[in-house]
Nucleic acid binder design. Structure first.
Lengths: 209, 209
DNA sequence: TGTACATCAGTGAACGCGCGTTCACTGATGTAC
DNA sequence: TGTACATCAGTGAACGCGCGTTCACTGATGTAC
């Protein structure tokens, strides 16, 4: 597409996008600040320093805004992984697992959003599509890292299993009852190490079709 | 404790327990019938054929009833596993994994309850204790099965990893976008097989401390 | 340069609904004398 | 056998709150003539 003259209408559209972004970023901050289920439109409006009804000028409903905020999160995690890889800090699946888990533990709200979407079936239409695409991007990255460091680069099943196992560890033991956070974290790391180790050991990933 | 004469007061207490059970079972049925987030006191009351306010004669609040219903579920899954083991149908981790996953897929509501409790941090006090105990029972059973069939019977870490991985598979791919349920199920089984296989292969579970 | 009109961002207040929980009351059953 | 009282299961209606969403309006900016 050749560069056209920028019209006033174009400018307006652009400003609109900018305002949208401001709102999404505010939402994202709110999710980072308060428990996931407590986030509501009023809090987001306050954070964005506008009125609630203004949000509805830019997003048709809560879900849409919500999905955008989540997509912002997936971009962050992908960017961080790329950074670490570029910096040569990831030499195997263990490193990768640790990084992935640390990110989600630090940014609990992304983790909550992720599981929310995985478990909730109510999303549909355009927001759902957008979400699925974001999910695919993350899985693709798992695949890529896996191909570089793991034993079974060619087979998507193994990267899927890895992805699932790490999520499962976070979900199943993240709130381990009656243990202090440090212990919990160490425990989860050990579990992640076990899975990573198995997936990296050549003899262990050949048996299944 | 020696058998005492049964007093009228005892009988009353007993009837009370029975009525409690009726309510919990009604709740359980409701959870099986409608989407998890939509279950409310009114629906449970209707199912139990009593008024809402009557429920509050037997349970202090929603959470307590909720926890009881979930415990009913954990008992069921444990009973089923025992059955299958007694019937000689479980000869390895793969069988066990399949059974566990099938149960949770069939009884989606238990799965939802489980993840709900794993992710939600708001529970406290007596209900939380009860819940934790139920969770421990399930983990113990994993441990036991693992000791019988798996390679690393002595180490709880491996059964924990197994438990977490299976949960993770269910959560991460249960609503895999744009696939029909049959495909999804097959995919999840393959992933479970991979994990089970690795944990059963002796050389794969020795490397980590 | 001025006037009438259209567009649209922004807003505070209100709507409507769902839902957990409580209230004030009824009626049955058991107990004391 | 009868009467006064306590206990407690059960209930319909109402309370109170949170929250997503909509409404009716204001005010600024741009456009047409």
């Amino acid at each position: 597409m050749p560069q056209q003259h920028q019209t006033f209408a174009d400018l307006k559209q652009q400003e609109r996008k900018t305002r949208q972004r401001v709102i999404v970023e505010a939402a994202e901050r709110v999710y980072g600040k308060m428990p996931f289920e407590q986030v509501n439109m009023r809090a987001i409006a306050k954070e964005a320093a506008i009125s609630v009804s203004s949000i509805y000028r830019y997003f048709p409903d809560r879900q849409s805004l919500f999905v955008e905020a989540f997509i912002l999160g997936t971009r962050q995690i992908i960017a961080r992984v790329e950074d670490h890889i570029a910096g040569g800090e990831i030499s195997g699946l263990k490193d990768f697992a640790r990084m992935y888990m640390d990110f989600l533990l630090e940014h609990d709200h992304y983790f909550r959003m992720m599981t929310h979407f995985m478990l909730d079936g109510r999303l549909a239409g355009r927001p759902l599509e957008k979400l699925n695409q974001a999910a695919r991007t993350v899985l693709d990255q798992f695949d890529r890292v896996f191909a570089q460091t793991g034993a079974n680069g060619g087979n998507r099943l193994y990267s899927h299993a890895f992805f699932a196992a790490l999520n499962g560890i976070l979900i199943s033991f993240g709130k381990y009852p009656g243990r202090d956070p440090g212990d919990v974290r160490r425990h989860m790391r050990k579990l992640a190490d076990i899975v990573a180790e198995m997936l990296e050991t050549p003899g262990c990933t050949d048996a299944t079709t």
